[in-house]
Design a protein around this nucleic acid. Sequence first.
RNA 1: GGGUGUUUAGCUCAGUUGGUUAGAGCGACUCGUUUACACCGAGUAGGCCAGGGGUUCGAAUCCCUUAACACCCACCA
Length: 893
Amino acid sequence: MLIVHKIAVNMKELEKAYEAKKYEDGIYEKWEESGLFNPDVCVEKSTAKKDAPIFSMVLPPPNVTGVLHMGHAAMLAIEDAMIRYHRMKGDRTLWLPGTDHAAIATQTKVEKLLMEKGVKDPRVELGREKFLEEVDKFAKASHDTIINQCKKMGSSLDWSREAFTLDEKRNLAVRTVFKKMYDDGLIERGYRIVNWCPRCHSTLADDEVEYKEQSAKIYIFKYSADFPFAIATTRPETKLGDTAVAVNPKDKRYKKFIGKTFKVKSFAGGADLNIEVIGDEAVDMNFGTGALGVTPAHSHVDYEMAQKNNLPVIKVIDEDGNMAADAGTVYAGLSVKDARKKVVENLRVSNLLEKEEDAPNNLSVCYRCETPIEPLPSKQWFIKVNKEFQMGPSKIMGIKEGQKTTLKKLMQAAVREGQIKIIPDRFDKTYFHWIDNLHDWCISRQIWYGHRIPVWYKGDQTYVGFEAPKDSGWQQDSDTLDTWFSSGLWTFSTLGWPDKTDDFNNYHPTSVLETGYDILPFWVARMILMTTYTLGDIPFETVYLHGLVRDEQGRKMSKSLGNVIDPLAMVEKFGADATRLSLMLGNTPGNDSRLSEEKIAGFRNFTNKLWNICRYMMMQIDFEKSEPAKPVTLADFWILERLHEIASDTSKHIEQFNFSFAGEKLRDFTWNELADWYLEISKIEGNKSGILQYILETILKLWHPFMPFVTEAIWSEIPGKKLLMAEKWPQLKKEKISGRVKDFEIIKNIITNIRSLRAEYKVEPAKKISVSIGAGKFAGLLKDNVEILQGLARIEKIQIDKSMKKPGNSVGFLESGVEVFIDLSGLVDFAKEKIRLQKEIGEVEPYIAVLKKKLSNKEFVKNAPKEIVANENAKLAEAEEMLAKLNDQLKSI
RNA sequence: GGGUGUUUAGCUCAGUUGGUUAGAGCGACUCGUUUACACCGAGUAGGCCAGGGGUUCGAAUCCCUUAACACCCACCA
């Protein structure tokens, strides 16, 4: 047996275990210094050709509200893998970073922090300017933390192009789009019912309202003693603003009252009411009393009814969440809560309250501060999604230049026509459903942190433009824009638009948008709206949606549950590569995944395994000679063929967004084939410098997008190499180098079977055994690889022939028609061996029966494809041969 | 009320257009310091693919249905 023990003299030996902490920061610095995160530099340094395909992506900008969580880490890992893959492929690859000012979220957070510091009412005490200074300070600190975290994860973002949703350039884009929309009549100011958060003191968009289930009281009451029937409500205090009662026109009980008006004197001691009875199909006759009190000012549904029926709108709740003057002097100024108690009490005293019932109810709350929302009428700016306008230059399929269309239709067309592809495609439904339910979008916010609305007023004049008009007396609107207005422009505002920049021409539309499915409506849909309208083009070609990262038990991670796993802590403990793998492998697109420290630790183990695999290979490689990777032995052919196959599959899976699959297959190959078999064989066969070097380099390249740090660390130890991140991706094709993979599998299986029998018979690992093999047509193959058999199965004496009689005192098995007998003199327990053989026969017999039944079925033979039938026949022949030999063995005992 | 997803080994999940004797990782168990790695190696056990119908020569995979869990949307007073 040949044993080669060679350590290249020019190599400093790698440490035994890979310690991520020692390498990561230094490697990131080297990457940054190279400038290669920037595609322009790649072209300059010719790692990418000028006319190479473009691959561009924007980083979904994290909110500057604090620190990154595991969801961000997953996003960074997946996007970086895509980016590194494309960069290595030689594409002109841009990944553009930035952060989001997240208007309400950030302002709320800073208010909270200031209040914790003892400032009772930050906005009142500090005033607009001072308050905004505080927010900016916080945002800056938060931004720096976030950038640092992105770097820790290894994200190869082009920092030279970093953007912020609230910086000057983005502000110009915002003003430009606002004006265009206003001029097209798509932005309009109006007095309408809006979602109002009394704590934030601002409007909210429909999708910024969340619902919390709670148990509520339903009160059934009459407006007055002489009112003909009762109605039900969960909010008695709003009834002070009722202007109608709606009933179903088919309802026999109430039909006769439709059209009549009832005067109510001082309802519950408050305002006088004028209640008109109206008919509306939407009223459910079987719910409550079948009659519905209509409060146009404080319910979206009632507001619509009021519009239809020309009812007056009386506002009885104000912006602070207190009762307004129109509620009556007794109520004015009371909080909603107190007013409710008082109305109920007054109704009870005057005997108008008929019943109180408990019922489940959905309370609408602010998504940021969980304060209950008050729907109330207010003068605000809206984007009209159903209003027709004339389309400008258009690349949107199905919508031509000059054609009349609406924003909704644009959003639908871009996805329906397949111009934008959403992965997984089931989210198409969510997208279209969201658009179907979309109402006009209220974009003005009464908060200070954000893009100021580019509108100026003077008396009753309104001016919309880029700057205040020259003449004096103009006052800018004090409101700011919904944060999604600016993030909706993100794919092109970051590329310099509205200036006609090279970046815009080169990188827009972007190739892929990768983000969590939870912000599909919030952000993705709005980007499609803004981009199709503004540019007449799509913002991105593919939307890839990842799932949420949950805790071990499948719960959302949250501070209050105390189940948050901090990405930075995991990077510190297990390394960025392990953290990345734990977020990319073992899940499927669009589905939530569970994360635990044990999972990350498992991938840390793999990181170390790869390190050691490479460490061992490097000890065997003579880098000075640089031999060609020429396969000589069966194992060589096998590993090269498998390597090429895995390389080609990895490319394929990455391009099809199957990152998990790609990584898992690559891991299985690296660990179970390369390390467990080929490297062990190389210890026996020796002299593989050329092949090992080829495998080493290829495997490091293939792993680099997934685990950039450890691969780069190893790469830097290979003499004469520069940066791995700039190396060419191995674009290998699946090819049959010799068709000998199957032959190798036979050897492998024989070894596994011998090992298994050894374990079963408790033959000590150190003890060598004698084996005789009846190999049939494979005799030559086995003889060629006898050293491998001996080495890996620990065989002392081996006899190979075409056929072999079962020696006494031996146990045997079959593999692909090859009979292997192990001499176990003194060790064989014949009773046990009998049982073992019978058990195997017991497995093969029913298998044969199934195959026979299948093949005797004429329908199967007739209908199934030829290959399948042939395949089943082959299986049957093999199984029958096996059965015969097993029976022989059994008889010979 | 409408919609989507999930249900496969003790746990976490794969299973690509229907054709395997249904796979992996972790965990469990038995061995083991053999010239990279104990963050390791060799081996073993463990599954009526949620239940019920159907389509098909053939179903974990397609259709219908029931159930449990999760999420999204709408919101009825």
